[in-house]
Design a protein around this nucleic acid. Structure first.
Lengths: 128, 128, 128, 128
DNA sequence: GTGGTCTAGACCACG
DNA sequence: GTGGTCTAGACCACC
């Protein structure tokens, strides 16, 4: 009955967004793989103690983003994601990268500092 | 009458947050500097076509974050920010860096790709 | 429908600050405890006869100060506050203590008088 | 031309209140004494670089509180303050003492901690 | 002139 | 139901 990915709900940001992020994170670090069965809305909502509607919204979001695939009557499955070209991929990260540069500057960090911190964060994610 | 920083309001995220971000961004790229006078709440609200209260909320946020300084009856001024140590600074970026790693992986980008994209984003910010 | 803490609005200082103080006071004297549910913005505003936005501002302030925790869509709850070390705690009281010493001297009171008065005030707060 | 008391204006609280407090503080620590001549509004405003109206308001406040005395055509003088009885004096401190107790509790300090800190603050004020 | 507070009432996101 | 955002417009304190 244990979840196939770590998920602990914290106050401060919408619960459904936290679920979406947890799934993407598990996918990125490899603990969840394309083809894996995804827990049912009912199970998941019970497991983490939130309203089923909330989980439903998260599943809808993930489906819309191409992370999950719903097989009617059988359940949800993690979908093999088709990567866009590098150029398009980078374009999607634009906002995030700019925010990172802005915040880093505000904190007095150089580009080299951020590169180093990025390497560390990347390692941490893949290692877990 | 022109604003000392670029600011165009778009739907999708709270207006006051967009203002806060625009100010931080201008500060990071150098078009706004510590000591500069900040436009009055009334002027700014008129300039971008939103209610004065909305601008007021942004000013309150920026003041609380130590970006602006209010001289009662005279106006707001950009404050010299005291950088925390590098370790603390990097810690504040933790969430942003992890999100970046997760999203990049989802888009099929390698760590090297992201480093390169970060360099480009950094250049763009400083060049403008 | 009664409030879980005493609160009577008086003119002379901002209403939202009075709310913030009343909450902190109730927390100090124990009539409000970590984990307790906090009244909804609408209820509280109706109860004390002020605009919901005013209460909202107080809630925002208390949240920013780490006194309340917001669970979106469910309500606000009193948060367990993490005490700083004694040294830092005393440092935060510096201004208040100096003001007390200045005012007491002006009123012709000795340090012993103030100590005694402080003891009485402390008792009163905890006894209520 | 040096001021008979330390006074440095900081943003964050009304300037006239800062002036009032600085005078009371100087009086409490003895660097200003009953009978001393008080600087003229014009001089003081020039000295600290604020609007004369602001200084005027501070002087009015201090006069109303019985700290200064205006001798028409001659200037202002520090007044010998008549102390109220102890009971009345303590009553005036009530709000300050309660706030102190509330804040101290929130910071996890005991009554003994506050007594000790009060002693230290008192010493510091008198020693300077 | 400046920012700060408050009211009145609408609309949206979240669970 | 909850809190969060926004508009419209008033009044006050400060300088």
């Amino acid at each position: 009955m244990a979840l196939p990915f770590p998920l602990e709900i914290r106050p401060g940001s919408p619960v459904y967004e936290q679920i979406v992020y947890a799934v993407k994170r598990a996918l990125a670090q490899g603990s969840l793989r394309p083809g894996d069965r995804f827990p049912s809305v009912r199970n998941l909502s019970q497991e983490i103690g939130v309203n089923p509607n909330t989980v439903q919204k998260a599943v809808g979001e993930l489906t819309a983003q191409g992370v999950l695939e719903v097989h009617a009557g059988q359940g949800c499955f993690v979908k093999a994601f088709e990567h866009p070209g590098k150029t398009d991929g980078v374009r999607e990260l634009h906002g995030l990268l700019e925010t990172l540069a802005v915040e880093a500057t505000r904190l007095g960090l150089s580009e080299a500092d951020v590169r180093k911190a990025l390497g560390a964060a990347w390692q941490r994610l893949k290692r877990e």
